[in-house]
Each structure stands twice: as C-alpha cells, then as structure tokens.
Simulated assay, not measured.
Amino acid sequence: MTARRPGRRTGEPNTKDEILTAARKLFSESGFERTTLRQVAQDAGVDVALISHYFGNKRGLFVASIEFPSDPVAVLAPMHECRIDDLAEVGLRAVLGVWTSPAGPAVVARFRQAVASGETDLIRDLLTGVILAPIRERLHDQTDLELRLSLYASQIAGLLVTRELLTLPAVVGTDIDRLVEVVAPNLQRYLTGKI
C-alpha cells in the first residue's frame, strides 16, 4: 500500500459525495451568494479544482446539492437569446415544459419536500441564484429590478402551487399554450412594464 501524500485529497471514490455533503451544509447555513467554492473545498478536504471537475461551477454544485432532477441552467438557456419583450413567455414556457416533462413529478416532489422540511432557504436560493439569473443578467439596468424579479417569481410560484400542488381543476385543465397566453403578459409587465 502506497502512503498518501499530505495535503488536499484528489478524486477518490467518496470525494463527490463528501463535496456534496459540505456544499449542502454551507448552502443551508450561508446561502448561495455567501458560499464560496473554496469554503466547500476546505470543508470537504479537497482541492477546489475537483469541484469544477465534478460540477462545473457554483450553480452546478448548488443544483446537484439540492438534488434537483432537472438542470435549470440548461432549461433556461433560451432566455439568454430571446428578445427582452419575450423574456416572460420564454421563461414561462421553459418552466411549464419542465413540469410537464418526465422530470416534472420529481421536481414537484422536491419542491414539496423542501417546503415541508423547512428548506425554504435552499428553494429561495435556487430561485434567486439560479432560476432568476438569466433575467437579472438581461435586465441588469432596469429600475426596481429586485422587486420586479420577486413579483415575477411570486407568479411562477403561485402557478406551481395552484397547478401542481393544489391541482385546481381550471389551471390543471388548461393547456400550456393557453396558460402562456394568459399569464405571460402579466409576467412581462413585472419585468419591463410599469409597476
């Protein structure tokens, strides 16, 4: 058996799990914005480069640490390319697309579990640090941006609750195109209109 050199560990069989354990703890205690990859690496006893190797970046690590079954960054990628006036529609279609995809039940179950177990900080950080990020980047010079984003998020969360948790028949029975037609204009007003 070869003696291990002192210093930070390189990738070993349990390394990825240990990184995730450290990340969950730090994200829960400090939130998405205040947690750094260096802190996670230090707590896990690994080189920070391993986090990039396994998870790409902090958002990737965060998504993996909360066991979200769909990659929000990939789902919301079209929001980086669309017209500003189409942000709400494109974002809403992306979110509804996840809910109606094979990953949808797992997404809703994870949301329900997080709320029931009091992990609301993690859900808030997923929302503000990951899901709203493309909108924040596109509208960075908009006045009252954080209020706008919060109002946008409130409508998306409300739709999730009424459609997927409470299963209100009128909302569940309405197809995605119709929901987008009805809801997106109000969402767009929150993002770029008068508030």
Rank of each mutant, 00 (worst) to 15 (best):
R4S: 09
R4A: 11
G7W: 02
R9E: 13
R9M: 08
G11K: 05
N14E: 15
D17Y: 03
A22W: 01
A23W: 01
A23P: 02
E29G: 07
S30H: 14
E33I: 00
V40C: 07
A44Q: 09
V48E: 14
S52V: 07
S52E: 13
S52Q: 13
S52D: 10
H53Q: 15
G56K: 11
K58Q: 07
S65E: 02
I66G: 04
D71N: 15
P72D: 05
A74M: 14
A74T: 15
A77G: 04
E81I: 07
R83I: 09
I84S: 06
D85C: 05
D86L: 03
E89L: 06
V90S: 01
L92R: 10
A94I: 02
A94V: 02
A94F: 10
A94G: 14
G97W: 03
G97I: 01
A103N: 12
A103G: 03
G104H: 07
V107C: 15
V108F: 09
A114K: 06
V115Q: 04
A116P: 00
E119W: 05
D121T: 01
L122D: 01
R124G: 05
D125E: 10
L127R: 11
I131G: 00
I131Q: 04
I135R: 00
E137V: 12
Q142V: 11
L147H: 10
L147S: 12
L149C: 09
L151S: 07
L151A: 09
Y152C: 02
V161C: 07
R163A: 05
R163H: 08
R163T: 00
L165Y: 06
L165C: 13
L166E: 15
T167M: 11
G173M: 12
T174Q: 08
V180M: 07
V180G: 04
V182E: 12
N186M: 09
Q188W: 09
Y190N: 14
G193R: 11
G193L: 14
K194S: 08
K194E: 07
K194P: 00
I195A: 09
